[in-house]
Design a protein around this nucleic acid. Structure first.
Lengths: 201, 201
DNA sequence: CTCCTAATGTCTATCGCGTAGACACTTCCT
DNA sequence: AGGAAGTGTCTACGCGATAGACATTAGGAG
């Protein structure tokens, strides 16, 4: 298992990983728009021609980076729900835990939300990805079975979670993963009764 | 300028940089002795054969890593003193500043001093490298020109500086570079009167 | 506005690094 | 004693990285 790779567990191209890495660091250094292709290949020690073997342009690279990271975030929770497979319950914190630990593992990437001139679409697609996970992979039960629109409920809790995540990142991961997860759990307990996880295995 | 490279400003091999990077991360993860060559190449996404193209064994890689980093530390201060070239005075903090900023820039590597089962020789050669810089590149004047053995004086101040550095690293770089440098300067002022820098240009 | 420089995107020919895989040997586990 | 995992060496091969030219576009300075 290669811990240096970016994103999900899929087989990935080494060179492309390095180009993505370079993009991340250069965005932090000078902002997305100021980054040139020369910068990227120079930073990653490749020839400019090599870049075009792998990507069409900077946007193509940026999209691949964002896609792979958010895809990895989804995969970190578990396989998407497949109708017909059994649903089983896990303890409350397990799913959030895997999201949190994924973000922490790739904090080098997720720190990009601290920058204004950053990866295009990051600020919109990151929370959307969390919402997608909540929608497709989690099943909630509200306290005392208060009847609510579950779509709204998931929207509400997903963005609440996103807010916590964002703050955690912005404050430089001051709290440990464990402490942070515990806070998330405690907050969840104020309005979520049970927490199921749709998944295979 | 490639910021991702490890160590000094010399031209370096891309693959070797990645192997070094992998070694650093694996030492932190499982300790130097537990790291295998398979681990390294797997982590850096190379074939095992590739490793032997560049290095004889793990020790060879470890030595290259340490050598390149300490060499880079020396180079960061300036070129070694060449007899006949003019000596000029700089403000007190400039030389320490470059050492500090180098260490901070490559903190990923220098954090290795926090680990017990870490790079062989790191704990001895790191302070020695600082001492070497003090000996070869700096000229001190003690307060009120108190007569002292300058070799001892440099040994004393170099290891004092090393102690501060070590503590700074161990506490996770809590203080900013600027704050830390200022503390070093203030402590230096208690016993150093002037501070010259042997160098070219 | 015009000039000039840097960056971009495309293409080609070439080179060499990284690859897979086999083999013998050692170490360590149980 | 047996087996699994790691090590070091070697060979042949393919593809990925390289240098460099070229036309075009974008942006900044005067």
């Amino acid at each position: 298992m290669n811990d240096e790779q970016i994103g999900s567990s899929k087989q990935r191209n080494r060179t492309e990983e390095h180009l993505k890495l370079a993009l991340i660091e250069l965005i932090k250094e000078k902002g997305y728009h100021a980054v040139t292709i020369k910068d990227i290949v120079s930073h990653a020690s490749y020839n400019r021609s090599t870049f075009y073997i792998h990507y069409r342009d900077k946007i193509d690279l940026a999209e691949d980076l964002l896609d792979s990271m958010l895809e990895g975030l989804e995969d970190s929770v578990g396989k998407p729900y497949v109708p017909g497979q059994k649903i089983y319950t896990v303890n409350l914190h397990a799913p959030s835990l895997s999201i949190v630990s994924y973000i922490y593992k790739y904090r080098n990437f997720f720190e990009l939300i601290n920058y204004t001139d950053t990866l295009p679409e990051l600020h919109t697609r990151f929370p959307q990805a969390i919402l997608k996970i909540y929608k497709e992979q989690f099943v909630f039960e509200t306290i005392n079975d208060i009847p609510v629109n579950m779509d709204y409920f998931k929207l509400y809790t997903a963005y609440g979670f996103y807010g916590l995540i964002q703050n955690w990142i912005k404050t430089g991961f001051k709290e440990s993963q464990e402490v942070f997860i515990q806070e998330v759990i405690n907050l969840s307990k104020t309005h979520i009764h049970s927490f199921e996880y749709k998944g295979s295995k």
